[in-house]
Design a binder for these strands. Structure first.
Lengths: 347, 347
DNA sequence: CGAGCCATAATTATCGATAACAACCGAGCC
DNA sequence: GGCTCGGTTGTTATCGATAATTATGGCTCG
C-alpha cells in the first residue's frame, strides 16, 4: 500500500522485456509485437502504472498542456470574477478537455514580476491570454513573448501594432447593430455608458460602432450622451445617476457591458423611469444573468462557446507551426424585454 | 531569436561557475556566496532564464500543482456548466493562485476509463474533486485513490463509508433554516422541489432538513408536496407544472437549488400566481443570477469563496501529512423578495 | 606546523521516461 | 553458404534540473 509508484522498469521486469520496449508498447509504437504489447499493457494495468508526465515531458519537450492566464482588470482580490470571463473560462476548459489537452489556469496578478510571466512557458506548450491589466504593459509582454517565439493567442481586440494572433468579438458591428435596432424601434437620443478614455479598446470599438450607426442614420453624436464607466453594476448605476443629473434627455441607453446596463436599469427604475417604455436599455456580452433581469436585458451576444473553441483550436494550430489569422467573431443581437422589442416575460 | 531556451548550463558558463551552483543560487540556498548569487541571478534575468519545471519536478518529485477534477452530473456536452460550480471553480482558481500553486483543471467526463483517472496523480501533488457522476463509481474511485494513498479532497456531502476528507455545505441546517423562515412568515403548506430518490445526497440532506423543520413545527410532511427534479431551470419549471396539476395546495416552495427555484417561479408566474403574495419561493445555492431575478430569489447561501479557500487550504495540509477533518460550512439565509420577507426591488 | 573545520564550490548520481542506434533472428535470394 | 532485409528487441544517450558527495582554500587552534 505504501509501496512506491511503479515505474516502467517494474513492468519491464515482470514482462521479461526491456524498459524501452515497455515505453514503446504503451505508446502504441508499431515497432513492437502485438503479443508483447498486450502482455505489457496487461501488466501495466494490473500494477496501475501511469507514465510519469514529468519524465515524459522532460524528454519529449512537449507537455500536452496549455496555460490559461487570466488578467483581472482590477486588482480587487475580493471581488468576483466578471461573469463574462467565467463563461469564457468554462468554455476554454471544455474546449481543451475535448482535445485531450490539460489546462493550467492561473491569475496573472503579480505581473510586475518579469519572471513569473514566463514560468508557464515551460509548463505548457501554449498560452491563452484572457484580459489585460494595463494595455501597454500587456503589449510589452506579448512583444517579449514574440521575441522568444512562444506560442500564444489572445482574446480581445486587435489594435494596430499588437503582436500575435487574437480571437475577438466584432465589437464594432455588434454595437452598431444594437444601435440600429434601437433606431428601428424609434429611439433617437441614445446614450452610451462605458469608459472610452481609459485603456479599454473594446469599449472604444463599441463606442465607434455606436457612433457609426448614429451617423449613418443622420444623427449627430452627442458627447453629453456618453458616460464613462468600468464594467461593473455599480459603475453603471453611478453613471446613470450622473447622466440624469446632467439633464441630457435620452430615450435609450446602450451599456458597454451587461453589468453596466444592469446597473443603469437599476438606477433608472429607482428613479421611476420605466423600462422599456420610457427608456430602452441594451447591454453587451450576454452574461447568464441578463436573461433573468427584470425586464430581461436585450444585449449583444458574445458567443463564448465558439470563442473558447476557436481560441484552443487556433492555439493548437499555432503550436503545430501553421499560420493563423486573427479573427473576429460576429456578434448577434439577443432581443429580450429591456429594449421594447419583445414581450417582457421572455427569457 | 530562434535560439534554444537557455539552461542552467548557459548561465553557469557565463558566470564562470558550475551548473549546480547556479541551481543553488537561484533557489536561494544558504550554501552559496552572496556575491555569486547576485551575479548568477543577474545573468539569469538577462538571459530570461526560467527553470524547467519538468526537470525540477522530475528530480524533486513535487509539482507545486493541484488538480481540479470536474465531474459533470449530466454528460450533456453542450449545456453550460452549473453556475454554482462555476463560482466554485473561480474561487478555487483564486485560492490556489494565492498560495502560489498551479492549478490543473479538467473534466472527468471519460471516467469509464480507469486509467485516465490517475494520470493527474503524476502531474499534481493533490486533487480536488468537484461533483460526482454516479455516486457509487465515485466512491469506488476515491477508495482506489485511498489505497495508493494519494492526496485528495472532495467537495460535497459526506456519507458514511465515503473515504477521504470532504468540505461541504451544511445542507441539512441550511434547508431547515429556510423552512423555518418560511414558517415564520406564516406559510404552512411548503413544497419541496428536488430529486431525493436518485443518487444525489445533497438534495436528500436538504429534504431531511426541510422535513425536520416541518416536524419541529408540528406539521406533517406531505409526500404529495415533494417533486423530483434535477438541478436545472427546466426541471424546476416542469416540476412546478406537475405540482399544480396534482392539485395539492401549497403556499410556499423550497427549491433544492436556485436553478430549480427559478424554474418554479417562471412556471408559477406564467400561471398567474403572484410571488411572493400567493406563493413564497426560496432556493438553495445563491448563484449570481438569483440576485437579479424578478422577484429576487431568497435563498440559502453556499459560501463558495470560503469553500474554495478551505478546499485548497486543507488539501495542502493533507499533502504535508497533517491530519484533516471533514467540515461542513454553515449555510446562511439570503433573504430577498421571493419569499415576501423583504421589499421586492432589493438585490 | 599539521589536524580539523568552515565556507564555498565543483563533481557525480539521480529522477523516469523517450530517441537514436545497435543487435539479433529467421526468411528469402543469388 | 553467405548476405541482405524486415520485424523486434535491447543498449545507450539524453532531457535539465536537484541531491548527495567530494574537493578546495583559508583559518583556528592545540
Amino acid at each position: 500500500m505504501k509501496e512506491r509508484k511503479p515505474t516502467s522498469f517494474d513492468i519491464a521486469y515482470r514482462a521479461g522485456v526491456s524498459q524501452a520496449t515497455v515505453s514503446r508498447a504503451l505508446s502504441d509504437s508499431p515497432l513492437v509485437n502485438e503479443e508483447t504489447r498486450r502482455r505489457v499493457k496487461d501488466i501495466a494495468r494490473e500494477l496501475n502504472y501511469k507514465v510519469d508526465k514529468n519524465a515524459r515531458n522532460l524528454r519529449s519537450q512537449k507537455t500536452k498542456t496549455i496555460a490559461l492566464l487570466l488578467n483581472e482588470d482590477h486588482g480587487t482580490g475580493d471581488s468576483l470574477i466578471n461573469p463574462f470571463f467565467l463563461s469564457m473560462v468554462a468554455s476554454i476548459i471544455r474546449a481543451s478537455a475535448n482535445r485531450n489537452y490539460d489546462l493550467l489556469v492561473s491569475f496573472q496578478q503579480f505581473s510586475d514580476d518579469w519572471h513569473a510571466d514566463y514560468e508557464d512557458a515551460n509548463r505548457a506548450d501554449g498560452i491563452i491570454f484572457l484580459g489585460y491589466g494595463d494595455y501597454t504593459t500587456y503589449v510589452k509582454k506579448l512583444t517579449h513573448l514574440d521575441e522568444q517565439d512562444a506560442h500564444y493567442i489572445t482574446w480581445g481586440p486587435v489594435l494596430p501594432g499588437q503582436p500575435g494572433v487574437s480571437i475577438g468579438c466584432d465589437n464594432f458591428n455588434g454595437a452598431r447593430k444594437a444601435v440600429e435596432h434601437l433606431l428601428t424601434l424609434g429611439h433617437k437620443r441614445i446614450a452610451f455608458v462605458g469608459g472610452i478614455s481609459d485603456g479599454s479598446p473594446e469599449f472604444k470599438r463599441r463606442y465607434e460602432g455606436y457612433s457609426e450607426a448614429l451617423r449613418a442614420a443622420g444623427i449627430e453624436v452627442d458627447p453629453a450622451l456618453q458616460m464613462d464607466a468600468e464594467t461593473s453594476e455599480d459603475a453603471g448605476y453611478q453613471a446613470a445617476l450622473v447622466l440624469r443629473e446632467r439633464g441630457a434627455a435620452f430615450d435609450a441607453v446602450l451599456g458597454a457591458s451587461d453589468l453596466i446596463a444592469i446597473g443603469v436599469m437599476k438606477a433608472l427604475e429607482e428613479a421611476g423611469v420605466h423600462i422599456p417604455n420610457d427608456v430602452a436599455v441594451m447591454g453587451f456580452d450576454d452574461i447568464p444573468i441578463s436573461a433573468y433581469t427584470y425586464p430581461p436585458l436585450s444585449t449583444v451576444q458574445q458567443n463564448t462557446r465558439q470563442a473558447g473553441e476557436l481560441l484552443v483550436e487556433n492555439l493548437l494550430k499555432l503550436m503545430e507551426g501553421e499560420k493563423v489569422e486573427s479573427f473576429l467573431i460576429p456578434a448577434d443581437l439577443v432581443i429580450r424585454g429591456s429594449c421594447g422589442g419583445r414581450p417582457l416575460s421572455q427569457h
